[in-house]
């Protein structure tokens, strides 16, 4: 029974990781930037989410607002921050991104206060029995369903619409795509918008699950999502999904069985290093 519970907890965590890491892997696949500031958009989404819910009482509206605001902010970060330094060595964008994240964390603290915000009347908090005495918070079930749904929608858009196909073409060969009339600028903007909206989606859920939105909530996802996209073989969407879920489960088992030796973050990175030493190209990469 303990195992089932641990797997279930791991899956909930894994779904959140997946939503955060997907946006990151989209950006990496397209531009080869390790986008640490992604976590700032995750936190921004969480703040917009909690503020909107408290003001209007509607969680649905909160999701829409959070995803829109973070999406637009993501495009702005790309246009103002990354676009001018795309031709520089990769660490330039990485350090710029880290600087941006540190500054953003401070802005959240100064604007919204260090102690964080909570939902006035947090929705979806009651426990639901599933089977055999296993209990879930409503929010936890909603996270899993919501993530699955949003990934399905994305997969559909990517394979069945002109813009989605254009995005895929740009990832595999930017020059060729451009010569076929794909606007690189548009594809990049869309990528940042969608990726940042996904981060906001995850942010609202994390805020809801913990019933707390604080300035530093992005710092752990910031590094761990990087670990996940590396495990998934940098830039691969399917790999990222599998890696996120695997890491969620490994962590929930690890904290029980290895908690005395390593803390939660160290377990995740020990797993990452072990995998990379065996498969330097990532866990699920093909080549």
């Amino acid at each position: 029974m303990l195992y089932v519970e641990l797997i279930a907890q791991g899956l909930v965590q894994g779904c959140i990781y997946a939503a955060i890491a997907l946006g990151l892997t989209l950006v990496y696949g397209l531009l080869r930037i390790l986008h640490v500031a992604h976590a700032a958009l995750f936190t921004l989404g969480a703040y917009i989410g909690v503020l909107t819910t408290n003001a209007t009482g509607s969680l649905a509206l909160a999701f829409v607002a959070a995803m829109l605001v973070s999406g637009v902010a993501g495009v702005a970060v790309f246009r103002l921050g990354y676009q001018p330094i795309l031709n520089r060595p990769p660490f330039v964008a990485l350090i710029a991104s880290i600087g941006l994240y540190i500054a953003a964390e401070e802005i959240f603290r100064i604007v919204f206060g260090a102690s964080g915000l909570s939902f006035v009347a947090a929705p979806l908090q009651s426990q639901v029995p599933i089977f055999g005495g296993l209990q879930f918070k409503q929010a936890e079930i909603a996270v899993m369903l919501g993530t699955a749904l949003i990934i399905a929608v994305l997969a559909y858009l990517q394979n069945r619409t002109r813009i989605g196909v254009a995005c895929q073409a740009t990832v595999s060969d930017p020059q060729m795509a451009e010569s076929f009339g794909v606007s690189l600028q548009m594809v990049r903007d869309i990528n940042f918008f969608v990726g940042s909206a996904l981060a906001a989606f995850a942010g609202v859920w994390v805020g809801l699950l913990n019933n707390l939105v604080e300035p530093t909530m992005g710092s752990v996802p910031a590094y761990k999502a990087l670990a996940i996209i590396v495990l998934g073989g940098l830039g691969s969407v399917q790999g990222t999904l599998l890696a996120a879920l695997t890491l969620g489960i490994i962590e929930s088992f690890g904290t029980i069985y290895l908690g005395k030796v390593l803390d939660r973050n160290a377990i995740a990175f020990a797993f990452l290093i072990a995998v990379l030493l065996v498969r330097p190209q990532g866990m699920f990469a093909s080549k």
Partner: peptide
């Protein structure tokens, strides 16, 4: 480890080493 992984992979691996150190010392 740096002989096995390069560039961005190395960045993340060394980041992992940092977290591993803190995680081990802390416990």
């Amino acid at each position: 480890a740096s002989l096995r992984v390069r560039a961005d992979f190395l960045a993340i691996t060394t980041m992992g080493v940092g977290f591993l150190f803190v995680g081990i010392v802390r416990q």
